[in-house]
Simulated scan of single mutants.
Amino acid sequence: MSLSVDRDKFQAADKPTLYKQIRLDIERRILTGEWPPGHRIPFEHQLMTRYGCSRMTVSKALSELAQADLIERRRRAGTFVRRPKFLSAVLTIPDIRAEITTLGRSYGYQLIQCSRRAANAADRARLGVQKAGKVIAISCRHSADGVPFAIEDRLIDLDAVPEAATADFAIEPPGTWLLHHVPWTEAEHSISAIVADSQTAAALDIASGAPCLVIDRHTWRSARTLTAVRLVYPGESHKLVARFKGG
């Protein structure tokens, strides 16, 4: 698979941050599933030509990706996409479909409910806005290899994201659609744990009272709320891992 990169953009970048741009570009391809587990990363000399940089810059970007367990550098064989050890990162907005396919598992999606309505008081409180015209309320389920992976309950503010009115969420998961079509500037995660009530247990095919991991997330663009979502995962099969460094 060929790289499609604006080379002039990378050449114009400040040299101290060029390797970070290369790393982020490769990381995006891996996390979106464009480069699946086992995919061979282009050789260093190919990356040098593509990005117009030195071998040292390319090597630094690849080294950070290896430290993050996203790639595996094999002597003489080349560099390959590694199968991730964990599913979620606290400091990013993951695409559930990409997470599952990157693990080499079969992704499944079921739209449970999707409705458009005038925002009520509960909707405005959840979105954190005083005024909102219409919203889209979506409930859906994600699965991996036919096993329930997560259930999703989402509100999209149509005043902030009017293009969502024409999206087909029966086919494309709302989180995937938003990441691919709607730019955002700020996000907030709230992580908690619950025990499954009967409705949640049935949706996730787990026992009533079983522990669940919950992520509540708000996403903004220029201080305007775009969406609020709650994701519920079976607690015994999920964990959150974030890797970060000090300045």
Rank of each mutant, 00 (worst) to 15 (best):
R73F: 01
A223E: 15
Q21D: 12
S63F: 12
L240D: 09
R29Y: 06
P173H: 05
S63N: 15
A66E: 15
V232Y: 02
C114L: 09
D69G: 04
G235H: 14
E34C: 03
A167C: 09
L62S: 06
Y107M: 04
C53L: 06
I191F: 06
L226W: 06
E172M: 11
A132Y: 06
Q11K: 14
D14N: 13
N120M: 09
S88P: 05
L31Y: 07
M48Y: 00
L47C: 01
F244S: 11
E99W: 07
F43E: 13
A167N: 09
P36W: 03
G78Y: 01
D123W: 08
A201G: 10
P211A: 05
S192F: 05
A201N: 06
P173T: 03
V195Q: 11
L65F: 05
L31K: 12
Q113K: 13
P174M: 03
F86Q: 14
G108I: 06
A201E: 09
D123C: 07
S139M: 07
H180G: 03
V232D: 01
G38M: 09
A13S: 13
M56G: 11
S198W: 02
R141H: 01
D145I: 00
A13F: 12
A187P: 01
G108S: 03
C114K: 06
S222M: 12
D25C: 08
K9G: 05
